[in-house]
């Protein structure tokens, strides 16, 4: 099979995914804008004004990158988890399994859809934040690279979750019990330097710490961890999750009997 066949197949999967989440925009694009507006009002304006500075910036400026990243993480993950599981549930994943589409294209297609939603929601939340605080841009390349890699990583996570899931409950367990706590404890609302040594060391096991900090560096130029460490961690997670997803699809786990 030649490369143009794969390119068309990839484009078809990604455009199908984009059409899906834009068709249900009230469920996919509006809620993050409302939720983040509430975070900005409550944590940024009302409570933040009493907290004072953090890392040399106002509390509002400090939490904005983390909140954008939180939206990107949640949306990249849940887009792929719900879309892929829905394909399994309605059995239309068979449309792809019978076609001459290599497994890596299937993964790239669904991940591409998750990344598209993650980035679009990230952009919407960034625009909403402009109503509350002027956005600083310290290094646009770092911002772009971090947000892209993070959405790839969590889209892969959502895919793996959907492959293992047997019921709709199974795709909400990980976001509720793993993703949300890791995000809240990932330095979105505070600097790691506020923690004691033990909790700082423990926080560094949390991959979201690296993403939030790299992203914050892109906006404000401050970070609790080095950029090199952040990118190394994110890349290692992406490679690990990709190989895991590839193995599952290749062996047909939950897809082929």
């Amino acid at each position: 099979m030649n490369l143009s066949v794969y390119r068309i197949a990839l484009k078809s999967i990604i455009s199908k995914e984009i059409i899906r989440f834009t068709r249900i925009w009230v469920q996919t694009l509006v809620p993050p804008a409302i939720t983040m507006s509430l975070y900005f009002v409550i944590f940024g304006n009302l409570i933040g004004s009493r907290i004072g500075e953090m890392g040399g910036y106002s509390y509002m400026e400090f939490i904005v990158p983390g909140l954008i990243m939180m939206s990107v993480i949640t949306n990249s993950y849940s887009n792929v988890a719900s879309s892929f599981f829905s394909c399994k549930f309605q059995r239309n994943i068979e449309e792809l399994l019978v076609a001459p589409v290599p497994n890596y294209i299937i993964i790239a297609g669904f991940v591409g859809g998750g990344v598209a939603r993650g980035l679009l929601v990230g952009l919407i939340v960034s625009l909403v934040s402009l109503f509350f605080v002027p956005l600083q841009l310290h290094n646009v390349l770092v911002i772009a690279l971090t947000v892209f890699l993070t959405s790839v990583l969590f889209a892969l996570g959502g895919l793996i979750n959907a492959i293992y899931a047997d019921t709709f409950d199974d795709i909400s367990i990980i976001p509720t019990f793993v993703l949300t706590p890791l995000t809240y404890l990932g330095g979105v609302f505070y600097s790691l330097t506020l923690l004691g040594d033990f909790w700082q060391a423990l926080s560094k096991v949390n991959p979201i710490v690296y993403m939030v900090n790299a992203f914050r560096y892109g906006f404000l130029g401050i970070s609790d961890v080095s950029l090199l460490t952040s990118y190394s961690m994110i890349s290692a997670f992406i490679v690990g999750l990709y190989l895991w997803a590839l193995y599952l699809i290749k062996t047909g786990y939950g897809l082929r009997s």
């Binding site: 078809s12 999967i13 059409i19 068709r23 309605q90 239309n92 449309e95 076609a99």
Partner: peptide, 20 residues
């Protein structure tokens, strides 16, 4: 085994796309 929420045209055109 098709997506019940997609249109008839989307279903057939997407399937063609998977075959290049």
């Amino acid at each position: 085994n098709f997506n019940q929420f997609e249109t008839v045209l989307q279903i057939v055109v997407n399937q063609a796309g998977y075959y290049g």
